[in-house]
Design a protein around this nucleic acid. Structure first.
Lengths: 242, 242
DNA sequence: ACTTCGCTCAAACGTTCGTTTGAATCTTAA
DNA sequence: TTAAGATTCAAACGAACGTTTGAGCGAAGT
């Protein structure tokens, strides 16, 4: 209906619509015709501007991740500058890494919760080109934060820290992306954190902030949990209580 | 090559192959022809035995989840019987819920790590029929465990417990399913836990056991982490350190 | 005025998808 | 032996997929 092509040219409109549809349906179940139809552009526009459907998905992520990971590195630089050579506190590192991401959810211009949900979902997508893409986009950031955590927790084996980084990433991604499933299953989800429901609404701001408030203590508690008694165990040993 | 149709009729062979292919490629990217080709059965066999591709996926999950969730309920019954009315310890509840799942990964007859990976991946699938299916399969188990956690942590608001249940489910699912991505990203994954690599190998037994050993302390640490200072916060308040 | 270039458009390309069909084959029991 | 039922089979169905094509359009440069 409304014909405002001023601030929204074809390229950006495709990216915005694709971001939302990939989030709602997944990559495979979202067709070019769904995207171009919703964006009200010609079917061939995607291949003209991006080359292929795969390249479109990569570009959807690149414009957000390049900003996010640059911001994350700057946050770490800032903290390490303030610390003056001393190791950072785990809480500072988590705040820089996860807080920066969750703050994207409050900013509609950065994709808001739509992008956060898409990111969490796509991390488990088995498509190979997606794995390769993420590996390249995340390599530097993960490496820097891994080192920061190693220094922050000198008594914890490095392999253990990397595993707990996995766990933390999973907890965060599911809290955002898996909500539609878990909400149905547990009877509680992101919708309960705000008055409004549905992605892209004005309630996203408060959702992201309250989610961070609940998530950060959990992550910190898990990261600093006592280590398992023994790394190697001979055989079964299945005692439920400690 | 080997022609042993004795213990493996068409139905079961389809289920086993579909379980692996859905895990490797996802639901949408796995075609009927891939499944029937790998299972060496006729293309029409799936529709004959199961009715549709959706029904096949449901049956792949049903035969595993019915066992898993029955086992989970029995484990909880056993613990509550031993406690004689007293609240359970959080560690006992987590062991019953997550330990039962992780022990499936050690048993090839129960799907092993293949099923665990598939389960973790599919929980974030946005398809509606999948969400509805899981909601039904998990309803009773989640309800029982929610109540057990409420009793185990009487000082923690119930909403907070449900959120931490989300976080725990996410940490576990990503640790299993998201490994292919995270391994590339973090340079450490399930493969490092065993001598062998690849799903379905003999290393799966030790992988599942060592994963549990790393995961359970993390989950327990997150579950029992101190609560956020204030549930309501007026505005920004962005202090990185505590 | 004319060419150039970036972009849009309708139409079609060949392929693959999930599903259906009806005959052929196997199994079982009277 | 024969009839009935269950299962497998090759073949085809219509629909939807991602991509390509070549004509057409409007603004910019000379």
């Amino acid at each position: 209906m409304s014909d405002q092509k001023t601030s929204h040219d074809t390229r950006d409109r495709i990216l915005d619509i694709a971001e939302r549809l990939f989030m709602e349906n997944g990559y495979e179940a979202t067709s070019m015709r769904m995207i171009t139809g919703a964006a009200e552009v010609n079917l061939a526009a995607v291949n003209y501007h991006f080359g292929s459907k795969e390249a479109l998905l990569r570009e959807v992520f690149r414009r957000r991740l390049s900003w996010l990971n640059r911001e994350r590195l700057q946050a770490l630089d800032r903290l390490e500058g303030q610390a003056g050579g001393a190791p950072l506190k785990p809480s500072q590192i988590l705040e820089a890494f996860f807080g920066t991401l969750l703050r994207m959810g409050e900013d509609e211009a950065l994709g808001g919760m739509t992008f956060l949900r898409l990111l969490g979902r796509t991390l488990t997508d088995p498509a190979e080109f997606i794995r390769n893409f993420f590996a390249g986009e995340y390599a530097e950031v993960i490496d820097r934060y891994k080192l920061a955590l190693f220094r922050a927790l000198p008594d914890v084996p490095k392999a253990e820290i990397v595993w707990r980084l996995h766990f933390m990433l999973g907890a965060m991604s599911y809290a955002i992306a898996g909500t539609d499933v878990l909400q149905v299953v547990t009877g509680c989800g992101l919708g309960d954190l705000a008055g409004e429901s549905g992605s892209g609404g004005p309630g996203d701001l408060v959702v992201a902030r309250r989610l961070a408030q609940r998530l950060m203590p959990f992550l910190l508690g898990g990261l600093r949990a006592p280590l398992p008694q023994s790394i190697e165990l001979p055989s079964q040993q299945q005692e439920p209580s400690r």
